[in-house]
């Protein structure tokens, strides 16, 4: 066979290199206690070479006081020590997946807001603004919404949930209750009715507000009329159902960045995304659960914001009530 001048057998390759390998392996394995220095010098890789920066006296004492345990900074990759007695003998680099998981060994790689894993949606805080749908490059997100009156706007003033509804907003929707339909629905028996219930409200877009009146462009006739605000309820475009096609999703994370109301997250999970058919990969609300604890900060902020708004509303209503009561008295 042809040979190459660089590749002739030589004493360095045939003897010295194997010799050094044996010596270093022995030094790594059998150096404990006072011979730790050799262990460190001959250790493979970036383990057992770096002293950790202990932050306080107690930790420093704990590290130094323990001669049996070789405390080094295992920062950079999975801890592959084979055993405590011979820490320099390593397990294979391969992470044995179902039994060992990389997110347990290197958690900084799987930070919840940083890793593009399975999609998780907090449906309660979703405001149906459709920003995520518009930014998805692959048309994976689908949402059906319905224009309706929020249940908080239908509560009595004096009940425990009273006064928590919203006000009319320019650019938002207004709903005019249709009295005959509402009266008919009081006595309607949904079990035996033959036809679907008729819409109870007439919806329109609020063009402008001034004092006690609102200019509304009605959806059915496209005409603008002026109504008294106290006759109108607030209407909302609300999310009814959502489906996410994980088969098309390319896990780019743009939807998470687009969501204004901090309801859309990419969790750090990568399991459980498989199925036998393409329809199995359509995720609905139950399969897009978020482990709230990981996105806790973001969700907490959003909920705190909304609680503040509600408290402000309640305070205003309470003021109005007391002002009325004072007037009535006076």
């Amino acid at each position: 066979m042809a040979t190459h001048p660089n590749a002739q057998p030589n004493f360095r390759n045939m003897f010295w290199k194997p010799f050094h390998m044996c010596i270093k392996a022995m030094a790594r394995t059998f150096s404990r206690g006072p011979f730790n220095r050799w262990a460190k010098a001959n250790a493979d890789g970036y383990h057992n070479k770096i002293e950790p920066n202990m932050l306080d006296e107690k930790s420093i004492a704990r590290a130094e006081g323990n001669i049996m345990n070789d405390v080094t900074a295992h920062e950079y990759t999975a801890d592959r020590e084979g055993s405590e007695l011979f820490p320099t003998i390593w397990k294979p680099y391969t992470i044995m997946y179902p039994y060992e998981r990389l997110e347990d060994l290197e958690p900084w790689l799987f930070e919840p807001g940083q890793y593009n894993g399975r999609i998780g949606v907090v449906w309660e805080t979703c405001t149906a603004c459709k920003l995520c749908i518009r930014i998805c490059p692959n048309d994976c997100l689908h949402m059906s919404t319905k224009l309706r009156v929020d249940i908080m706007d239908l509560q009595d003033e004096d009940s425990e949930h009273g006064g928590l509804g919203g006000d009319l907003q320019v650019g938002g929707y207004a709903a005019l209750p249709l009295e005959e339909v509402l009266a008919a629905h009081e006595v309607r028996n949904p079990v035996t009715a033959h036809t679907a219930p008729e819409p109870e409200y007439r919806f329109g877009e609020v063009i402008s507000l001034s004092g006690k009146t609102a200019t509304v462009r009605w959806n059915d006739s496209n005409k603008e009329t002026i109504e008294y605000s106290e006759n109108l309820l607030r209407g909302d475009e609300q999310i009814v159902s959502g489906m996410i096609d994980m088969g098309r999703c390319m896990f780019c994370g743009l939807c998470m960045e687009a969501c204004d109301s901090t309801s859309f997250f990419m969790t750090n999970e990568y399991d459980g995304l498989s199925g036998y058919t393409r329809e199995d990969l359509w995720f609905d609300a139950s399969r897009t659960r978020v482990l709230i604890s990981e996105q806790q900060e973001a969700v907490d902020e959003e909920l705190a914001l909304r609680a503040k708004k509600e408290r402000a509303k309640r305070a205003k209503k309470a003021e109005k009530k007391s002002a009325k009561a004072k007037k009535a008295e006076a």
């Binding site: 920062e75 900084w108 940083q114 890793y115 593009n116 896990f251 994370g253 743009l254």
Partner: peptide
């Protein structure tokens, strides 16, 4: 992966800069 969120398709740069800064550590 720390920078971009996944191992091969990072979606890291944005027009005008980058998606996020170097993580701590």
């Amino acid at each position: 992966q720390e920078l971009g969120g996944s191992r091969m398709h990072y979606n890291f740069p944005r027009v005008g800069g980058v998606k996020r800064d170097l993580p701590i550590g």
